[in-house]
Amino acid sequence: MDLFNFITHSLNHGVSRSYSDSPPAHYIKKIKSFSVLKKHSAHGHQSTEFEAGGYKWKLALYPNGNKKKNVEDFISVYLEMDGVKLLQAGWEVYVDLRVFLLDQNKGSYLVLQDRNIKQKCFHGAMLDAGIDKLISLKEFTDASNGYLVNDDCVVGAEVFVCKEKRAAKAEFLSMSYYSFTYKHVWNVENFSKLDAILDSEPFTVGNKKWKIVLHPKGDSNGKALADPETLPPRSKTCVEFSLRIVYRMNRKTNHCQKATNQWFDASSPSWGWSHFIALDTFSKAGKGDFVKDTCLVEAEVTVHGNSQIV
């Protein structure tokens, strides 16, 4: 490749180039039968874990280009942060990524970097970053360049953590297009004799546990549905729910139902109605009008989304 084409290639694809006689300091991989890897790696090939700058990483290689970003005729390479649980909530890690290709003809390495964004930023919502168009397949597979010889190549990486800082407060909101509605039925017996507050058996919706809370003598606070133990701090859950009391009186089935949409969090783990149904309705139980002194309390719960602050 002449100097003019070399400079044009680098500018067009936003990749800077340099050369090194030393191998990469953090990761190196020899690939045998690259053509076979290319044939069977439509979704990319992930390296084994390696450590650099106090963090664990993996290198993802797309021999045919990253199709999710509409890359064709180029090799794509990305750095992925592994063991993300070790990354403190709300922190950003800035990384200088250098990708190495061994020139097997000269015994030296071509070092490639993103010209536009040299420092990649990793955080809770961005766990991978790299170079969409690292090198063209035409240039890479040309044996005269030395990168692919006898269908073998050597790829490496250096990862330097430039800085770490706590990011501004961020909130991640995830809403679901398709939400499952769960119906829980609770049979309450001897209603007229109840004095204490009752809790239903817990049930699970949207990976969180819920329960119905019944106040047979009324509740000025209006709390009716919750299980705060499964609501993580600094998170909110969007819930659509309805509560219904079904009872038989004078051989006729009656019901009272109310519905709402609410956001639940650790500080507001429950919500309901303090004036759900008049107590006078159930005072007739002693006269035999309330069939078997029994009623059903039903809850239909749909979790539509979650919000997490980091």
Rank of each mutant, 00 (worst) to 15 (best):
D128H: 07
A129R: 11
A129M: 07
G130H: 03
I131R: 02
I131D: 01
D132N: 15
D132V: 00
D132Q: 08
D132S: 14
D132T: 01
I135Q: 03
S136T: 06
S136D: 02
S136K: 02
S136P: 05
S136F: 03
S136Q: 01
K138N: 14
E139C: 07
E139M: 11
F140I: 02
T141D: 05
T141V: 05
T141Y: 09
D142E: 14
D142T: 12
D142C: 05
A143I: 00
A143C: 04
A143Y: 00
A143H: 03
A143Q: 06
N145L: 05
N145Y: 06
G146F: 01
G146Q: 03
G146E: 04
G146Y: 01
Y147M: 03
L148S: 00
V149L: 13
V149Q: 10
N150W: 03
N150T: 00
N150L: 07
D151V: 06
D151F: 06
C153E: 02
C153D: 02
V154T: 13
V154I: 14
V155A: 06
G156P: 04
G156N: 12
G156E: 09
G156R: 06
A157K: 04
E158Y: 09
F160Y: 04
F160W: 05
F160Q: 11
F160M: 09
V161L: 08
V161N: 04
V161F: 10
C162T: 08
C162W: 06
K163P: 01
E164A: 04
E164R: 15
K165D: 04
R166S: 01
R166G: 01
R166N: 03
A167E: 02
A167H: 06
A167Q: 05
A168E: 12
A168Y: 12
K169H: 05
K169V: 08
K169F: 00
A170T: 10
E171F: 01
E171H: 04
F172P: 00
F172S: 05
L173E: 07
L173H: 13
S174H: 12
S174E: 09
S174A: 07
M175E: 12
M175D: 13
S176H: 14
Y177S: 12
Y177L: 08
Y177H: 11
Y177I: 08
Y178N: 13
Y178M: 07
S179R: 13
S179N: 15
F180I: 07
Y182W: 04
Y182G: 05
Y182V: 12
K183V: 14
K183I: 14
H184Q: 14
H184E: 13
V185I: 15
V185E: 15
V185C: 15
V185P: 06
W186S: 14
W186R: 14
W186V: 09
N187K: 15
N187C: 13
V188T: 14
E189P: 01
E189G: 10
N190S: 13
N190Y: 13
N190V: 02
F191L: 07
